[in-house]
Design a binder for these strands. Structure first.
Lengths: 252, 252
DNA sequence: TATAAACTATGACGTAACGTCATAGTCAAC
DNA sequence: GTTGACTATGACGTTACGTCATAGTTTATA
């Protein structure tokens, strides 16, 4: 019977020497024998077994399972295959979902492909204000968070931008008219819900994060200025309203 | 701004403490500061950044890529997403292929599993003939061996059997063209190996079982007829070839 | 036959993204 | 002042190998 040294078998099977040594070590494929010098010697028998191994490996079976599958003669192959199939299917479903999420995200980003110039983005602000905002945004806040909304805002069409901006302004005005009411009241909470949905155009915050965002409206000068522009202390009111909103979410 | 200790942030984000410590270590998410005692202190800023991280993580981005994505200001998000999408799609296609392979394999195995009754296996033979064949096979050859291959053959459906025949036909033709050569020669042995691999689709015979199957090809009229249909005495040739194959396996 | 080239074995370490365990220091409460 | 909860860190395990270094073996060649 022909005998093969490790690199021959490796070449035949398309594996590396180190891989075969590894398979030996974990007991997946032992050589037929070893020479006095400790060299591994394989025969056709091992080649055939290796083919079986590679079949399962191709199916993404973990080596530990393969070891059981090919060594136990009474192992229920069909059951193992079906169980594995189940797992592959779940993996596929999940991956399909991820692709979908990417598509949605990309659509959102692309829909707004036309790049707005800074002047358009910050229309209403003076040049100096623009610079200071940009600088502040860059230095003070989390780069990515700000960048994402910054970019998504920057890449909007004028129409898209106008729409979002209008939406945001309406929400702000609504908050302004309701100031003084109980932040936890239904009418205020309805506006918060709209705000929350608005925010979700840009990213999907957890409850805690949304709460944090509300706090940021007060702590951050630029945000506070934005709201307080509508009405004095509106930022604080919005913060409280968001807090109440999150309280309710948490309680559920 | 509110300050959170590591377990608070972990709970909020649904991660483990160890994971956050890990993210700190690899520079993915550094705490806002550290206390004198070395305790990590996080704020809402980190919460927001973490949310971004989790968004990409959900999409199976490796953490290293996420680090670049959220830290490099000029990183092209759309490009990165589309590239990732490409990868996910390839993964999905491959997984779908694996599922398909499993389905085909399981179909085969299930056909094999259904037990054929003797009458079906030997349809066309009389009861007496059946008994005589069984008796002969049992007595003439190593009882255990023959019984093994016998039984494994018995467990096929008609359809399964037809499929085996169909798929085995190519192998048969190859044997036919090589008849006259030394059954132990490399070229013949290669075909035997293919036959062996083919058989292995259905069950995993021991060497002895495989040898018994070879004998069965000669001793059983139906099998013999099958091979001799291709060429006179082909069954005997195949038997010899399988014998030589098993000799080599045994010799080790 | 001596030597160089090619091959082999083995241990150690690295990978990704954490989990687990052990050890030790820290903080708040009773 | 002690207990209990919390934190930090290092070490090791996980999967399926790859890479590198070191050392011994076989083979080819001069």
């Amino acid at each position: 019977m022909n005998e093969y040294k490790i690199s021959s078998l490796a070449k035949m099977a398309g594996l590396s020497v180190r891989t075969l040594q590894y398979y030996d070590r974990i007991g997946l494929l032992k050589p037929s024998k070893k020479t006095d010098a400790g060299y591994r010697v394989y025969t056709e028998k091992e080649l055939l077994k290796l083919q079986q191994i590679l079949f399962y490996r191709e199916l993404d079976f973990p080596l530990g399972s393969i070891k059981l599958l090919i060594n136990k003669r009474d192992f229920d192959m069909v059951k193992a295959l079906l169980k594995h199939r189940q797992m592959l299917e779940e993996r596929n479903i999940r991956t399909a979902g991820l692709i979908n999420t990417i598509d949605k995200t990309v659509r959102k980003l692309k829909e707004v492909k036309t790049v707005l110039k800074d002047e358009e983005l910050y229309e209403g602000f003076s040049k100096k204000e623009i610079e200071s905002i940009k600088k502040e945004v860059k230095e003070k806040y989390d780069p990515k968070v700000v960048k994402e909304s910054y970019n998504s805002v920057r890449h909007m069409t004028k129409e898209g931008f106008a729409r979002v901006k209008e939406e945001g302004e309406q929400v702000s005005r609504d908050f302004a008219t309701l100031m003084g009411k109980d932040p936890a009241s239904d009418e205020v909470q309805r506006i918060v819900a709209r705000h929350y949905a608005h925010i979700n155009n840009y990213y999907k915050p957890t409850n805690e994060m949304y709460r944090g965002l509300g706090k940021l409206y007060v702590d951050d000068d630029r945000f506070r200025a934005h709201y307080d522009k509508y009405k004095k202390d509106l930022a604080f009111f919005v913060h409280k309203a968001i807090d109440a909103f999150c309280d309710k979410l948490d309680k559920k």
